[in-house]
Design a protein around this nucleic acid. Sequence first.
DNA 1: CTGAAAGCGCTTACAG
DNA 2: CTGAAAGCGCTTACAG
Lengths: 357, 357
Amino acid sequence: MASLAEISRICGVSLGATSKALSGKPGVSDATRQRILSVAAQTNYRPNRLVHAIQRGRSMTVGLTCSDFHSDFGGRIVEGMLKVLYEASYDPIVINWDLCVHEGEKVLRTFAERRVDGLLMFPPADQPSQDYLQELRNLRRPIVVVDQVFAGCECYDFVGSQDFEGAVAATEHLLALGHRRLANIFFRQTSTGRARLEGYQHAMAQAGVAIHGKWLCEIGQYESNEAYVRTRELLASPEPPSAILCFNDWVALDVIAAATDAGLSVPRDLSVVGFADLQMSAHIRPRLTTVAQDPREIGRRAAARLVSLLEDREQAPAVGKIGEAAAVAQAAAPVSERVPVKLEVRDSTAAPRGVGK
Amino acid sequence: MASLAEISRICGVSLGATSKALSGKPGVSDATRQRILSVAAQTNYRPNRLVHAIQRGRSMTVGLTCSDFHSDFGGRIVEGMLKVLYEASYDPIVINWDLCVHEGEKVLRTFAERRVDGLLMFPPADQPSQDYLQELRNLRRPIVVVDQVFAGCECYDFVGSQDFEGAVAATEHLLALGHRRLANIFFRQTSTGRARLEGYQHAMAQAGVAIHGKWLCEIGQYESNEAYVRTRELLASPEPPSAILCFNDWVALDVIAAATDAGLSVPRDLSVVGFADLQMSAHIRPRLTTVAQDPREIGRRAAARLVSLLEDREQAPAVGKIGEAAAVAQAAAPVSERVPVKLEVRDSTAAPRGVGK
DNA sequence: CTGAAAGCGCTTACAG
DNA sequence: CTGAAAGCGCTTACAG
């Protein structure tokens, strides 16, 4: 906790010599260097990175707006990010995404004032305000958006999942088992939800299977009992589905609960497919068939992309015409990456009754 | 992104005047102030907090070491922390706890070099190394430990759950239902696990009910299939338990799976109690009886405690005898807080067969 | 009201 | 090899 000045005084040398000795730069005699190093160790000296940040114009921090702390999906994304950032010597300053929705400009101002080098935005839901998007532009720093696509964020790099393809694969799996009365409980408020809905519709159309209006079942939030209630209704209707494709594993859990409470057995009376492959999904009974995402890889790639943008920027000539920095920040064309998903067939899906055997 | 110097130049005033105008301090005429503010807005000026941090000796950041991104328990703790920190104008720099175990000193050096004002340690498992503990002492900043107690960390404030009391309540619940063959699947590697084991033993002793050796069932990790395998063994043994108290909800999930796969029904053939009340626990079937913790409140209190330590420190006279800062950092006696738990009785527990009805 | 100067904790050319 | 000086982006007494 001693300062450079203190160490210099103790050693009876100049600030410059001490600085060089401690940062391993040449220009100090070995004897002096040893003396300085030893005093630094004794006084518990730690270089002040805030000073470095000011001097170099790089804080080696990145802003991370995140929410979805409610399941291991978000948690694993963050884990992947933390690992890559740590290895690249960047530290994340984390702020809850909810705050970005409600007082987003303030959050971004904080990031700007802390001089973060870039931004990792993991926004599980809720479209940010116009003010937020404007402030985002003012930041003039590399940004990578994760998981959800937003209107107004098309200009930033993106890393997410193959939501459309996953829903197609899940639907085709159910169709191949012989299901025709195939419902979809979907969530329209996030881009992932919309993409999965489209995947379902696409696969159904491809197979030439009609979608009964009642089987297209929208929910407004998936942490309420809405999915449960809607499933009970569906199952009690005159034309109940034989299979339900769910927006995600949470919904699937409620669908299974609803079926169980209605006296039905999964998968004998109803097949259920989730999306995510949360930790619990292989541990519940019946083990859940689901479209497995790879959240750690999403987090890793997102962070790696940001780090690479940051390094590129550093490489780029610092001098130049006005506006060049901005140009570099926006990069050429924004890159979108979608990490592959994989259908995990487990025990919650089977051929409908009377089919297959 | 303009600097103070730039704005001063544009406005034709001194640095000092500009500084005062922008920070709302008196000593500038209204006309000048307005001119400066308007230029600042146009040039998108953001004060550099890194400079403030250096000048004031407070970075307004805290280090947060965290892991357990694998369930909503840890996630909610973090949520609670983020909320309180944000309101108190502190920003967290987050590093994965795993790194603290493997290269802990390096992580703490990073925190020291970034001049975090305090530390929030949320360590789900794994005793940190001696080097880590030493470096922790060198930090000389307020520290609050969360959830797990460690040897070597007794000198820091702590916020956790009533683990012992929770296990007692769960055991008494099962005893009251009439269970006598009451097994416990426990986890000895964390302090919470040990406290819960003690709670079980205490309640059993109080009730004068003997614990069959086989019913004391230790697992080495709860993210493997160990709990599942051990439960299958237990249930197939000559004296199977009629109820199992589980270290946490993840274990309970596997116990229910094992019972189901063994052709048993929960709670008819076996009662199961968890610990945590994770998101899923009220959604699975049977709905899980569990000791509900309050992770958001844990996070909130831990952060609030740290903030209050930080403010106290600021109040304290900066001058004084050598060593006073250290004394303030350690505070008087460390405070331990345990957030109450609540037994949530749901559908996974019932009277043993042949009892009660 | 306004400006010049010192200082926060460093690093980095630049002289000796 | 070593020291004095300028500078990073500010704030804060201190003179005018």
